[in-house]
Design a protein around this nucleic acid. Structure first.
Lengths: 287, 287
DNA sequence: GTTCCGCATGAATCGATAG
DNA sequence: ACTATCGATTCATGCGGAA
């Protein structure tokens, strides 16, 4: 029996083992980064990181539906002048576990952390690594389409002869175009780069990502009433995104403080009218 | 004896072996991506890629100065529904060769390749992986500072070639709208994400990256009269960037066609008056 | 001189079909 | 079963000629 819309309090691996097989449509999570957030999470060292995560990713593989998706939001630390390798090692090891490394989305941070170092600039991006259990998975691309660029208003007014038929590129790239396909088009598909702001106004809580980040992936990979799992839910952002979008959530959180925080944020969200701005169209919020 | 400002024609590895030790300040290159450009370059398969590149990166390590930097512009192919792993495997193997993996910059492409697939969106980013020989290397951060402003805040390095020419020429005539807005504004350091357009309508000779990409790294990691190496120089874009910035270049190109193309582009560049707008560069102009 | 507008172009990938 | 080839799909940019 799958209990939904709950935040389980306890150790991640232990809690995962209580879930049935193949019950989750989407896993979205941002695990504690190695050696970061030492004050709140117990730090996992960069050397231990892969071995710490692999038993968890094995359980995630078990609970995910075959046509489901796992999005891992993560970024490697710079330590002693070098980017650490635990993320890319983890990708290779998870492939050995049977995961497919389908894609790597980039979260390009609109407003990243300030700071100055002699050997590097501010870090303005994080990985959102996509894993799947099989080649064919559910993806609802239309749900995240974006308004077409301004160029189309001028370009598509009048079509030439070549516009109307398929025009094959001469370079041999195999790419042809048929511009008349674009007539009447208002929305186009996005790319694999998300350009979002961080939410810096979270008082006292190290919320690691903005609600729009899980929102985008939840819209892309699930339908209403599907079940989304976040095994390191922290302050509950993923659950809030689920409530906004009428998806079910399951969260796991080990730390008492964060568990309480997540419950508070979910409670606040449930208290709000669903027609408020939070429920509004994703891309209008990105402007 | 180091011969500079030349494009060596021949096999990459063989040509590298003719160079002396520790003579290069910056290596910037974009090697043929696995199995891409099959019609022009002989394709290297995804499985062979790491073993093909490692002898080359060993030579690059030898010719680079101890305080120099190596920037590798690369992106892994999607094949059979999965991102291939040769890039991340290469990073791990190059660390075994003694390279430090210092940073990973992202080139966020303003106009990426079109297309539509059931399982992925268009790929709008590439890696610019930074390697060094030692923890302390030359970095001139001030040379790439960007003016803070209403719109420059949104996109950090948002300038296309025409933007640049237009702005530069307008400053000359005293009516530069954008540029005069920047004058007197504060300068900030950029981040590790570069937001640039590809140059796709370059009269028949398309380069795989815009000249602003090597330009940015050359300014960041070298001074005037330093030596920049591109062991896969293709159509010569890196050399053109060097000439614009008064740096010396060494290029290597195996294919007759591309070697000729590089020579043509360099010749064209040299034929231009150094005081023309193309010579000027935005950031130094604004200082 | 400036703006407008037509249009070629690009490190792509998947599924189907053929050998 | 495995590989090779081919067709379908797609968006924003910059150049150059026209208004």
């Amino acid at each position: 029996m799958l209990e939904i819309d709950k935040i389980l309090k306890g150790d991640c691996l232990t809690s995962l083992k209580t879930l049935p097989d193949s019950c989750i449509n989407l896993i979205f999570t941002s695990p504690p980064y190695a050696d970061n957030r030492r004050k709140t999470y117990k730090g996992i060292s960069t050397k231990e990181y892969v071995n710490w995560f692999l038993p968890i990713s094995a359980e995630l593989h078990r609970v995910l539906k075959n046509d489901g998706t796992f999005i891992l939001n993560i970024k490697e630390r710079a330590e002693n002048g070098e980017r650490q390798t635990y993320v890319i090692e983890l990708i290779l090891e998870m492939k050995n576990q049977g995961w497919l490394w389908t894609e790597e989305y980039i979260w390009h941070k609109k407003n990243c952390y300030p700071g100055k170092w002699p050997n590097r600039f501010r870090d303005a991006w994080e990985r959102c690594v996509q894993f799947n259990k099989q080649k064919h998975f559910k993806m609802y691309q239309e749900s995240v389409m974006v308004p077409i660029g301004n160029w189309s208003k001028k370009r598509l007014v009048k079509l030439s002869e070549t516009d109307r038929k398929r025009d094959v590129s001469k370079v041999g790239s195999g790419f042809g175009k048929n511009v008349s396909n674009w007539l009447g088009k208002e929305y186009v598909y996005p790319t694999n780069v998300l350009y979002l702001s961080t939410e810096c106004s979270n008082r006292g809580h190290s919320a690691s990502f903005p609600v729009l980040l899980p929102t985008w992936f939840i819209k892309l990979f699930t339908l209403e009433n599907d079940v989304v799992l976040d095994p390191f839910i922290g302050s509950g952002t993923t659950a809030v995104a689920c409530i906004n979008l009428n998806r079910h959530y399951i969260g796991i959180e080990a730390m008492e403080h964060y568990h309480q925080l997540a419950m508070d944020n979910i409670g606040k969200r449930n208290g709000k009218n669903k027609t408020e701005p939070e429920k509004a169209n994703l891309w209008s919020l990105l402007k």
